[in-house]
Nucleic acid binder design. Structure first.
Length: 273
DNA sequence: AGACAAGCCTGTCCGC
DNA sequence: TGCGGACAGGCTTGTC
C-alpha cells in the first residue's frame, strides 16, 4: 500500500470499526514479520486488551490498546481489513485478530515484507524516534528545511525518501512533489535555492493532501478497508509517464534510477541550476 | 528469462 | 577511534 495518503486512508477506514472493541484472539502466520518477537508471545500479549484508538505516524499504523500498542507497517503490499468471522479473506492472510463483536482484523501481505510489533510501553516505540515532520500537520519554515538540507550531498529526491526529514513520503509522491515544485530531483540537497525550498514546502503537503482526497493511489493492489481503490493515479503528473509530454512545458518526461529507485521528472522545467 | 514493483533495514566503505 | 552519510544488497512474491 503504503505512502502517507494510503496509510491515512487505511487508518480512517479501520478506526471506527475497531475502537472500543476487545481482542479475544490473535494468530500470526509469518514469524519473521514479528522479529525479534514471536507469534506466541505477541498473541498472548494482545489477548483481552481493549482497542482505545488507531492512529498514524508517517507510514506507521499504531493500534493503541489499554496497556500497549500494536505497530503495523504495511511496507510494499500489506493491507488491513475488518471482516465478519468466516468471511473469505483470499490468499496471503499473514495475521488476524479476533474481536469481541464477531469481526476479525485481517492483515494480508503477499510479499510478507510488512512488520508487526507489540510495545507494552507506548513511550518507547523505537521506529517512531527516527521520524521527521508530519507533512500534513507540522508547519515548517524554509529556514528549518535549509538547515536540514545543509551539508547533505545526496540528491533531493532520494533524500525525500528518508523518513527522518518528512515522514510519509514514498517513491510516487517524491517525484510528484518535485514536479509541482519545479525542482530537479538530481540536484544536491544542499544546493537547493531559497525559492526552491519555499516551493517544496508547499508542494509536499499539497500533493499528499490531494492524494488523500482521492483515497490514495492504486497502482495494482491497494484498496482501503472497505475495498475501495484509490484514484490519485489519474492525477499523476510524472510518475509512470516516461516519454509522455510534460503538462507544463510539453517536453518528454524522463525516467531515471536514483538510489535503486525509479525517479520521474520533466527534462524541461525541472532543471538543475 | 529477467527486470521491476507502493519500503526500509543492514553491512560496508569513506571522509571528517 | 567514532560517527554519520552514501550506497549496494537483501528481504519476498508476483507481474509484465
Amino acid at each position: 500500500v503504503p505512502e502517507l495518503p494510503e496509510v491515512e486512508t487505511v487508518v480512517r477506514g479501520i478506526r471506527p470499526k475497531l475502537t472500543g472493541l476487545s481482542i479475544t484472539g490473535a494468530r500470526f502466520l509469518v514469524p519473521r514479520q514479528l522479529q525479534p518477537q514471536t507469534p506466541r508471545v505477541v498473541a498472548k500479549a494482545l489477548m483481552g486488551r481493549r482497542i482505545r484508538g488507531v492512529r498514524r505516524r508517517g507510514k506507521i499504523i499504531l493500534i493503541e490498546l489499554n496497556g500497549g500498542t500494536l505497530l503495523v507497517h504495511l511496507r510494499m503490499t500489506g493491507s488491513l481489513h475488518v471482516r465478519p468471522i468466516g468471511a473469505d479473506n483470499g490468499d496471503y492472510e499473514r495475521a488476524r485478530m479476533t474481536l469481541d463483536n464477531g469481526t476479525i482484523l485481517v492483515f494480508r501481505d503477499p510479499r510478507t515484507l510488512g512488520i508487526l510489533r507489540f510495545y507494552s510501553d507506548s513511550d518507547t516505540i523505537e521506529p517512531l524516534r527516527r521520524l521527521g515532520w508530519e507533512p500534513l500537520e507540522d508547519e515548517v519554515s524554509a529556514e528549518q528545511v535549509r538547515e536540514r538540507l545543509a551539508r547533505r550531498k545526496l540528491a533531493i529526491k532520494p533524500l525525500l525518501l528518508d523518513q527522518s526529514l518528512w515522514a510519509g513520503i514514498g517513491n510516487i509522491y517524491a517525484s510528484e512533489a518535485l514536479w509541482v515544485a519545479s525542482v530537479d530531483p538530481r540536484k544536491k540537497a544542499s544546493s537547493l535555492t531559497r525559492p526552491e525550498i519555499e516551493r517544496l514546502i508547499k508542494s509536499v503537503p499539497r500533493v499528499l493532501r490531494a492524494a488523500l482526497h482521492c483515497g490514495g493511489t492504486t497502482l495494482r493492489d491497494f484498496a482501503d478497508p472497505n475495498g475501495r481503490r484509490g484514484s490519485y493515479q489519474r492525477e499523476f503528473r510524472v510518475y509512470g509517464r516516461q516519454g509522455e509530454p510534460c503538462f507544463r512545458c510539453g517536453r518528454p518526461i524522463r525516467k531515471i534510477v536514483q538510489a535503486q529507485r525509479s525517479t520521474y521528472f520533466c527534462s524541461g522545467c525541472q532543471r538543475r541550476r
